[in-house]
Write a protein that binds this DNA or RNA. Structure first.
Lengths: 340, 340
DNA sequence: TATTTTTGATGTAACGATACATATACAGGT
DNA sequence: ACCTGTATATGTATCGTTACATCAAAAATA
């Protein structure tokens, strides 16, 4: 990183060809793998060219190649959410898998701002990303804008719990996850289950509420509207949720995520309650620390590995013009530990 | 994401020019900002062209632009480490900051494999990334290979605790962090401090050991070699470290990271020890869950925000051909909580 | 009015790679 | 000898932009 003057000495294909004593076309085909359609290039010259290229340290100019072929070999990834952290691991797995098949990963994190999301999509458009993987996150009243942004983009894979119909997606079935939680809590004796609702206007949260209701209905338990404990996502107020749950004499609290579960447990313990003896608590996400809490956390694992596999499967099939299902739904898995 | 047939209808600059009734050159200059060197374009035509462009939904072809200008507007990021997770947040902040200034972020995670690192560097080379931000991670015996890979790359910013001299870097001073830990522990009465050493061959771990020794020396405490408790990074064996610390009658354990600290605390509690009364434990990284453990974790915050700021500062100054310091060192901050 | 200067627009040649069409050589078949 | 075919190499146009040179007209100076 010198203070002035950029790196020089980019080797071009012409120079490689010159050194090998062949034409540029020959060099191109040789390095692409020899097997042209109409014409081939002999083994002898292939190795001659390969040698020249490696001696010169030739790296093909991606921009030129892309301009000619129209394919960028770039996969765009958008993390659009107010809780981006959850997706880091997921996208990290996807990136590593795609890298193995020769694709580059360009990432943009929007943190919930729709303006920024638009900027990323524009940028990806400009760069002719071969595909776009995006988390779909819809804040209240944004539906129109969102549809507008994605309209005309036909190479997008939606990830998470997207509301879009007729679009290829990998659905992380949070509704099913919370049903499993309710099943478990009810079958072990709890009927008053408080649901920690972080912001009910977001689509993912709505799905969670639906799952909660469906779970209770399954066991013929009347859903007490009070037990939906709402607040905004500020980190401090999980404690308030804990206190409210006690007021309501809830037997269990299903927290919005593991971090909030940890905070809720802490507050309950501070108030002299034992978890799970006095009140049970469940999390969501199964983060790395969840097994290490005291009590260790019963939680829902969204199976990032499986989600990543599905996403890569769909993207690769799309890129290779092969058939693939419109929608893969990954059912989460309940992880039973001490807290509930 | 249709099963067959790619997206059509890419609008080219020529079409915009045609619609606005001007030449391609005029359109180009207008959209670039009007202020050409030798010639200018009038306000009237600028707006005419702008309108045409937006009506057609024109997006400049990044590949063509890059081919002509030589600048890709891409920043490459490499997460090269066996513990990549630590860097997610850091790179996420950097990405968001750089996005604001119009740069794209292309990311490759290597998980410690030097082959993969090489592949990413090649790829970035091909794509003419304007700069590369990389964590430097040197496994035993890899020094030669690493130097080879980075030789000739002059647009790299190293992040973390890199061993490279004469290369621009943002140093996260882990050594200083552990000194602060030792200071705190000693000044509150502990002299037998066990250090949780995850793999002593890695450069970052070596720096931590150095800091530990320096901290003890400062207080005239003879370092007992036994108190360096070594093992590999497998998640299960933090418990072994805890037991060994008890055997050695350590008064405190400085864990390699917060996750291990959590595991160590758990094991100590399981064995009937109270933290911090019987034995103190400190972490490293100040993760989001650390304040929620019981006891809440005293740990070292590496100040990702400050590191990201420094990285962005250096990269931007480099890109704009401005002067910048060769090395910014970010001192971590000790966060005092209950566990020590 | 003639001449310079300013302002605005256009034309053209790249950037580096690939796809296609074209050339050359030397087989074998008639 | 002549055509046909196969195998290998080359030439050339092109992708969409931008940089530079050129050009035409209007404005300012002489």
């Amino acid at each position: 990183m010198p203070k002035e003057g950029r790196r020089e000495g980019k080797i071009t294909l012409a120079e490689v060809a010159a050194r090998a004593g062949v034409s540029v076309s020959a060099a191109s085909k040789a390095l692409l793998g020899g097997g042209g359609k109409t014409t081939r290039v002999s083994q002898a010259t292939i190795s001659k060219i390969r040698r020249a290229a490696s001696e010169l340290g030739y790296r093909p100019n991606a921009a030129a190649r892309q301009l000619k072929t129209g394919r960028s070999n770039i996969i765009g990834a958008i993390i659009h959410s107010t809780a981006p952290r959850i997706y880091y691991e997921l996208f990290s797995i996807i990136q590593q898998k795609l890298a193995k098949t020769g694709y580059c990963f360009m990432v943009g994190q929007s943190d919930g701002s729709i303006r920024l999301l638009g900027r990323y999509l524009d940028e990806f458009h400009s760069r002719h990303t071969d595909a776009i993987i995006t988390t779909f996150f819809e804040a209240p009243g944004e539906n129109q804008q969102l549809r507008g942004l994605y309209a005309g983009l036909d190479n997008v894979l939606y990830l998470g719990s997207p509301d879009f119909e007729n679009a290829p997606r990998v659905d992380m079935d949070t509704g099913d996850g919370i049903i499993q939680v309710v099943d478990h809590l009810v079958s072990s004796g709890a009927s008053r289950i408080a649901l920690d609702v972080v912001d009910k206007f977001y689509s993912t949260v709505r799905k969670r509420i639906q799952g909660y209701r469906a779970g209770l209905k399954k066991h013929n338990i009347k859903a007490d509207a009070d037990l939906l404990i709402e607040n905004d996502g500020a980190p401090g107020n999980a404690a308030a949720t804990a206190r409210r749950a006690l007021e309501l004499e809830a037997q269990a609290v299903a927290a919005g995520n593991d971090l909030r579960a940890a905070a809720i447990i802490r507050e309950l313990q501070r108030l002299g309650r034992r978890v799970p003896e006095d009140i049970r608590v469940t999390g969501f996400d199964n983060m790395d620390f969840s097994a290490l809490l005291k009590p260790s956390l019963t939680t829902v694992d969204q199976r990032n590995g499986a989600v990543a596999d599905a996403a890569v499967f769909m993207v690769r099939h799309y890129l290779d013009n092969m058939k693939f299902p419109e929608n893969i739904s990954i059912k989460p898995r309940l992880v039973l530990r001490e807290s509930a």
